[in-house]
Amino acid sequence: MSNNFRRAVDSEVILTELMLPSHSNFSGKIHGGFILSLMDKAAFASASKFSGQYCVTASVNRVDFLNAIEVGELVTLRARVNYVGRSSMVVGIRVESQNIRTGIVKHCNSSYFSMVAKDLDGKPVQVPGLIIEDESGLRRFLRSIKHINMRNARKIEFSRENFVAKDYHDILKNYNVKITM
């Protein structure tokens, strides 16, 4: 365990960018892939700021696009480390858009990026511990633990060694699927 601890607020990164026509998709809304790219930059910046190391994206936990973003709106991403392991961190990111003329702010999406700190040789390196200062920080940390445990259990359950197809046939009767094996 590290004797070095940092506060989540010390990892906070805020990025704001004007959405241009070049960022739009065929329907005239801002392309989701462009927003994902901005989110990855924010996660990298937050994790690197916290750890003092360059970081790589290991995984992204679910991105639900809640509200479309329009050309001409300002998009603000707020990123902060919610959880730390030995070399990994979970960075929570909130994306909001603001209509410049009306001032109306919309929550567009939130997501969690798992980042890993690397040394100059590309090997994982230990990150500082996280100081939890309030109930919100505790809730975020525990949520990450639960997600990691569920992900690991799912990986084991559906591994080639453990998966038995017939065990799931009854469950699939309630889904829009036809099994022909």
Rank of each mutant, 00 (worst) to 15 (best):
N4E: 15
N4K: 15
N4G: 03
F5C: 08
F5S: 11
F5A: 07
R6Y: 13
R7Y: 11
A8F: 06
A8D: 02
V9P: 06
S11L: 02
E12W: 04
I14C: 06
T16Y: 01
T16N: 03
L18D: 11
L18P: 06
M19D: 02
P21K: 07
S22W: 13
S24N: 09
N25C: 07
S27M: 13
K29D: 14
I30L: 05
I30Y: 08
G32T: 05
G33C: 05
G33N: 06
F34N: 05
I35T: 08
S37R: 14
S37T: 11
L38Q: 12
D40H: 05
K41M: 14
F44T: 09
F44C: 10
A45V: 07
S46T: 02
A47R: 00
S48N: 03
G52R: 03
G52D: 00
Q53K: 14
Q53V: 03
Q53M: 12
C55P: 03
A58T: 06
A58D: 00
S59T: 00
V60Q: 05
V63S: 00
V63K: 03
D64A: 13
L66F: 11
L66E: 15
I69P: 10
G72H: 11
E73H: 14
L74N: 15
L77P: 02
L77C: 04
R78D: 02
R78I: 03
A79N: 03
A79R: 06
R80I: 08
R80C: 10
V81Q: 01
V81I: 03
N82A: 07
N82C: 07
Y83S: 02
Y83W: 14
V84I: 02
G85F: 00
G85K: 00
G85I: 01
V90Q: 12
V90L: 11
V91G: 02
R94H: 14
E96N: 14
S97R: 02
S97A: 05
Q98A: 11
Q98F: 07
Q98E: 15
N99T: 09
R101K: 15
T102V: 09
V105D: 09
K106C: 12
K106D: 13
K106L: 13
F113M: 02
S114Y: 08
S114E: 09
S114G: 03
K118R: 13
K118G: 05
D121L: 13
G122V: 04
G122D: 06
G122K: 12
G122Q: 11
V125G: 00
V127F: 00
P128F: 08
G129M: 07
L130M: 00
I131T: 11
I131S: 06
E133M: 12
D134V: 08
S136Y: 10
G137N: 01
L138C: 10
R139L: 12
R139K: 14
R140Q: 08
R140E: 13
R143M: 11
I145Q: 13
H147I: 14
H147C: 10
I148P: 11
M150E: 15
N152V: 09
N152E: 15
N152T: 12
R154L: 15
R154W: 14
K155R: 15
K155I: 10
F158L: 11
R160C: 08
N162L: 05
N162C: 06
F163C: 04
D167T: 10
Y168M: 01
Y168I: 01
H169G: 03
D170E: 12
K173F: 00
K173E: 04
K173G: 04
Y175Q: 07
V177M: 03
V177W: 02
I179K: 08
I179A: 08
T180R: 13
